[in-house]
């Protein structure tokens, strides 16, 4: 049963991912990416990471994709030539790389690839996923957390600097 759920999610994810790369219209690509995000969130729920699933939907689907669609609409893009001349080479290269990766995984067992049925995750036992992540975030991982807040500050100011429109020649900004 668990396998069935996995294959459903995985199948849709791969399908929509291919559509993102292959479709001609950027709006359609963004929308298939949206479907992919929802299914990735579903995958997270099966892996007992409910908080991350919620965050995935809120941030990726709710913020990032909306921003992409907004810019696509703002720039009013036309449909155009899709691929570089080297499409065939690139696709072949991708296939070769994938084949190599599968061979590597299959030939020499990863330390963990044999871990499966035994590992029912024991982390989120008494405490929910949200609480455990929250505890970690504000204690052990405080340093990256603070740096992340600075990242957002830089991104905000940078975005304003690059795209603010119609400024007159004045001394103050």
């Amino acid at each position: 049963m668990a396998n069935l759920i996995f294959f459903y999610f995985a199948g849709i994810i791969v399908l929509t991912a291919t559509l993102v790369v292959a479709l001609r219209n950027p709006v359609y690509s963004a929308l298939s990416l949206l479907v992919m995000f929802f299914h990735v969130a579903g995958l997270y729920v099966t892996l007992h990471a409910e908080f991350l699933a919620a965050i995935q939907i809120i941030i990726y689907a709710g913020a990032i994709l909306v921003l992409y669609l907004f810019v696509v609409m703002l720039l009013n893009l036309k449909r155009e030539e899709r691929f570089h001349q080297q499409t065939l080479t690139a696709a072949l290269l991708g296939l070769v790389l994938f084949g190599e990766a599968v061979l590597l995984l299959a030939s020499r067992p990863l330390r963990l690839s044999s871990m499966s049925a035994s590992s029912e995750p024991n982390v989120a036992s008494a405490v929910g996923n949200t609480e455990s992540i929250g505890e970690l975030l504000y204690s052990t991982y405080l340093f990256p957390f603070e740096v992340a807040s600075l990242i957002l500050l830089v991104a905000m100011i940078g975005a304003v600097i690059l795209s603010k429109k119609g400024l007159l020649e004045s001394k103050s900004s």
Binding site: V14, T18, V21, P26, S29, F83, A90, L93, G94, F98
Partner: peptide, 18 residues
């Protein structure tokens, strides 16, 4: 890999970012 191929192959910047 699909994403990688997308970055290398597509010409439309929005699709590259996606």
């Amino acid at each position: 890999l699909i994403g990688l191929v997308g970055v290398l192959v597509r010409r439309n910047i929005i699709i590259i970012l996606l």
